[in-house]
C-alpha cells in the first residue's frame, strides 16, 4: 500500500534525502513506526504523529492512502 508522510518543525530535514514529504510503498499491516523507518526518520526525533487529524501512537496500523504527519515542537517567536 502507498502512504504519505509530511514532516513539520525540526523533523523536516530528517527524512531520507533531506525531504520534508514523500510517498512510500509499505506492506499491508504496516504501522506508523514501519513507515517512519522506511522514510529514514529517526524515532528519537519524532515528538508526535498524527493520522486523519488524530494523534496516533507508533503502533497504529496504517491503511492505503493514509497520510502521516510528523511533528517536533517549534520554539521560535
Amino acid at each position: 500500500m502507498r502512504i504519505k508522510i509530511k514532516a513539520f518543525g525540526t523533523t523536516y530535514h530528517l527524512m531520507r534525502g533531506g525531504r520534508e514529504s514523500g510517498e512510500f510503498e509499505l506492506p499491508p499491516d504496516a504501522t506508523v513506526e514501519d513507515a517512519l523507518q522506511v522514510a529514514g526518520i529517526d524515532l528519537q526525533d519524532v515528538w508526535i504523529t498524527s493520522v486523519g487529524g488524530q494523534q496516533v501512537k507508533l503502533d497504529h496500523l496504517l491503511k492505503e492512502g493514509d497520510e502521516i504527519l510528523v511533528f517536533s515542537p517549534v520554539g521560535g517567536g
Binding site: F8, G9, Y12, F71, P73, V74, G75, G76, G77
Partner: peptide
C-alpha cells in the same frame, strides 16, 4: 501558545 520556525507555525 504559539511557536514558529522557518515557514511554519504551531
Amino acid at each position: 501558545e504559539a511557536g514558529v520556525l522557518r515557514f511554519e507555525g504551531l
